[in-house]
C-alpha cells in the first residue's frame, strides 16, 4: 500500500515538473518578447526626443562595441581600452572579493564557534559593518597611498563584514540535535567541524557571500570614481562625464549592469552546486 502511494506521488511530482517546465519555457519566451518590445520603445522614444542626454540604445550598443569589443581576435576581440580599463577593474574586484570573502569566512567561523567570543565581539562587529565603506576611502588612501593597494584593501574591508557576520551567525545556529548526534556517536572535533558545522553554516555563509558579490562591484566602481585613479570602468565614467560624452557614460552603465548580471548568475550556479541539498530540502518543506 505504501509502495503504491509512493509511486503515485512520484508520478505526480514528475507530472508537475513537466508542466512546470513547459510553463517555464513559455514565460521565458514571454519575458524576452517583452524585453525586445521595451527596447524598441526605448529606441523610438529616444530617437523622437533627440535629447543628447538620452542616446538611443542602438547607439549605446554600437559605442560599447567600438569602444571595447572590436579588437583583433588575438586579444579575444577586446580593444586596448577594454584591456586597459575593464580587465583591471575585474581583476581588482576578483582579488578584493577573494581576500575579503576568505577572511570573512575564517574569522566568521572563529567568532561563531565560541559563544563567548561572539558575545564580546558582536557590538564592535555590528558597528564596523554599519559604517558605509565609502566614508573610509580617504583613510585607505592615506594609509596605502593612491593605487592598487588602497583599492584592494578598500574592497576587502567593505565586504569582509557581511561575510563575517553571516558566517558567524550560521555557525551559531547549527541544529542542536545535529550536535547531540555528533556527541552520541563520539565524532572528533575535526570531524564535527568539517562534516557537520561547516555544512550547516553554508546557507548563511552563502547569503553573506552573495551580498558581498554585489557590494564588491559597487565599491570597485566607487573607488574608481574618485580623483587620482587612472584606469578602470569607473574612471571611464568620470572621464566621459568630463568630456560630456553621454553615450560613453551610458555604455559604461550598461556594461556594469551586464557584468553585475553575469556575476550574479555565476554565483547562483556555484550556489546551486554547493547548496543543492539545502534548496531541495527547503522546497519540500514549504
Amino acid at each position: 500500500m505504501k509502495a503504491t502511494a509512493e509511486v503515485a506521488t512520484r508520478a505526480a511530482i514528475a507530472r508537475r515538473d513537466s508542466v512546470a517546465r513547459r510553463k517555464g519555457v513559455r514565460t521565458a519566451a514571454f519575458r524576452w518578447l517583452v524585453l525586445v518590445v521595451l527596447i524598441l520603445v526605448w529606441e523610438t522614444v529616444t530617437r523622437v526626443l533627440g535629447s543628447a542626454f538620452f542616446p538611443p540604445p542602438s547607439m549605446i550598443v554600437v559605442r560599447m562595441y567600438t569602444m571595447w569589443f572590436s579588437g583583433p581576435p588575438s586579444t579575444l576581440f577586446l580593444t586596448d581600452p577594454a584591456i586597459e580599463h575593464i580587465l583591471p577593474s575585474l581583476g581588482r574586484m576578483a582579488a578584493g572579493f577573494a581576500g575579503g570573502a576568505l577572511a570573512g569566512v575564517v574569522l566568521g567561523l572563529a567568532v561563531g564557534l565560541s559563544a563567548r567570543a561572539y558575545d564580546y565581539l558582536d557590538g564592535v562587529l555590528q558597528f564596523l559593518r554599519a559604517i558605509p565603506p565609502p566614508a573610509l576611502i580617504t583613510v585607505f588612501l592615506v594609509v596605502f597611498g593612491f593605487g592598487l593597494k588602497a583599492q584592494l584593501a578598500f574592497i576587502m574591508f567593505s565586504i569582509v563584514w557581511p561575510v563575517l557576520l553571516n558566517t558567524a551567525d550560521g555557525a551559531r545556529s547549527v541544529e542542536p540535535l545535529h550536535l547531540q548526534t555528533c556527541q552520541v556517536f563520539r565524532l572528533t572535533r575535526a570531524e564535527r567541524l568539517r562534516r557537520v558545522i561547516l555544512p550547516s553554516t553554508l546557507p548563511k555563509m552563502f547569503a553573506g557571500l552573495r551580498l558581498a558579490v554585489s557590494l564588491s562591484l559597487i565599491v570597485m566602481v566607487f573607488s574608481e570614481l574618485l580623483p587620482g585613479t587612472t584606469d578602470g570602468i569607473g574612471f571611464q565614467l568620470t572621464f566621459a562625464k568630463s568630456q560630456s560624452d553621454l553615450t560613453a557614460m551610458w555604455a559604461g552603465i550598461v556594461l556594469l549592469g551586464v557584468l553585475g548580471y553575469l556575476l550574479n548568475e555565476l554565483f547562483l550556479v556555484v550556489e546551486r552546486r554547493v547548496l543543492g541539498w539545502h534548496h531541495a530540502a527547503q522546497q519540500l518543506t514549504e
Binding site: V34, L35, L246, W250, I253, L256, G260
Partner: peptide
C-alpha cells in the same frame, strides 16, 4: 512582463549612476 526589466535594472551598481544622474 516586468521581470526582464527588473532583472536588467537591478544589477546596475547604483554608484555607477552617480556621474550620469549628476549631469
Amino acid at each position: 512582463a516586468s521581470r526582464s526589466v527588473v532583472e536588467f535594472l537591478r544589477p546596475i551598481p547604483s554608484v555607477a549612476l552617480i556621474p550620469l544622474v549628476a549631469l
